[in-house]
């Protein structure tokens, strides 16, 4: 039994600690308030998995003195979440998972700003490649087979992918240009639906991220014809690149973390340092990069901004070709 005096003493100590902690926060460094991590997509998608992974690594290492909560603000293929972030200008305690939509959203008039005029790119943490895959019993053994068949009967073969004016759609468009062929692009609602349609034989080929299809390849149900990368992937050396087959185009999807404009130098530095610790952690390398067959990156500042600038001009060109930019 605690005596009454002991109770009072404990209470006093607790109060003192709380006061010290509180004043510590008030004068202290970023973060001074709980952090909101926005996922502009529904639970279960690539960005959702990414941000939950990052937050869980930060949590288990206690790298943040303040709690971090993940909020899904889905809507308009990301428009709702990113516009929310853009509206948080000057608030360093809100960040979001970044996708190519950070630049392509503004081009299509869906987001009010991009990384240059309304968001701060904190780090690009990985690059996800895109591949062309077929079923294992498909008559197209190689990329050449597929191109040959597509040339023999133009606009007959079907390629499935996620959405329209999206990375998968642009991939298909760039492949058509590079190979001088015409195919029918069939948009689906999610990567899972694309893979289902591929395995069921409802489309001839599909645009896939490595992690969406690798388990099917291991099980002998699917085959990757080529990857749109500059060199072969470290963990899938047997998959050729489009360029080495003579159909030169490069296209991928980056993943990163983005904040609002005017976050302040201190907050930006905190995120860059913390994310650097995340991407060099063992758990990240094993449970995220290797599992998803991603190419790891740690681009920040100018390097990240220039990458996004380059992406922006590519998108402007391709989306204009696809008729996705309304004059």
């Amino acid at each position: 039994m605690l005596s009454r005096r002991a109770l009072v003493a404990t209470a006093l100590v607790l109060t003192a600690t709380a006061t010290v902690t509180l004043t510590g926060f008030a004068q202290g460094k970023y973060p001074t308030r709980p952090i909101e991590v926005v996922v502009p997509y529904a639970p279960g998608g690539g960005t959702d998995n990414l941000m939950r992974m990052i937050v869980s690594i930060i949590d288990e290492n206690k790298w943040s003195p303040q709690p971090i909560t993940v909020n899904n603000r889905a809507g308009g293929s990301g428009a709702v979440g990113y516009n929310y972030l853009v509206g948080k200008k000057g608030n360093p305690h809100v960040v979001a998972g970044a996708t190519p939509f950070v630049v392509s959203g503004k081009i299509q008039g869906r987001i009010n700003a991009n990384h240059r005029d309304g968001m701060t790119i904190l780090m690009i943490v990985a690059v996800d490649e895109l591949m062309l895959s077929v079923r294992s019993d498909s008559p197209y053994r190689t990329l050449e087979d597929f191109v040959k068949a597509a040339k023999a009967s133009p606009a007959k073969l079907t390629i499935g992918g996620t959405g329209t004016n999206t990375e998968d759609h642009i991939f298909t468009h760039l492949f058509e240009e590079a190979a001088g062929i015409k195919v029918k692009y069939v948009p689906f609602n999610s990567g899972g639906e694309v893979t289902t349609a591929l395995l069921g034989g409802h489309v001839d080929a599909a645009v896939e991220n490595p992690n969406e299809v690798i388990a099917q390849v291991e099980a002998g149900k699917a085959r990757n014809l080529a990857v749109a990368a500059e060199k072969r992937m470290a963990d899938a050396k047997d998959v050729p690149t489009f360029a080495e087959k003579g159909y030169t185009f490069y296209w991928n999807q980056y993943r990163g973390v983005v904040g609002p404009a005017d976050m302040g130098a201190e907050a930006v530095r905190w995120w860059q340092e913390t994310l650097k610790k995340v991407v060099t952690s063992q758990r990240w390398q094993e449970a995220y990069i290797k599992k998803n067959l991603l190419t790891p990156t740690d681009w920040t500042g100018d390097e990240a901004n220039k990458y996004l600038d380059g992406l922006n001009s590519k998108y402007e060109k391709v989306l204009a070709n696809l008729g996705a930019i309304k004059k």
Binding site: A42, P43, G44, G45, D48, N49, R52, M53, S56, S190, G192, T195, T196, L199, N211, I214, A215, Q216, E218, A219, K221, E286, A287, Y288, K291, N292
Partner: peptide, 25 residues
């Protein structure tokens, strides 16, 4: 198949990967 059939199973699959499993056939 390692393919989510609904929104909920999509989140679970994300969990599977974070635990270090690879959902698939």
């Amino acid at each position: 198949l390692g393919i989510p059939g609904s929104a909920t199973t999509a989140v679970m699959m994300g969990g599977l990967m974070m635990w270090g499993l690879r959902p698939g056939p």
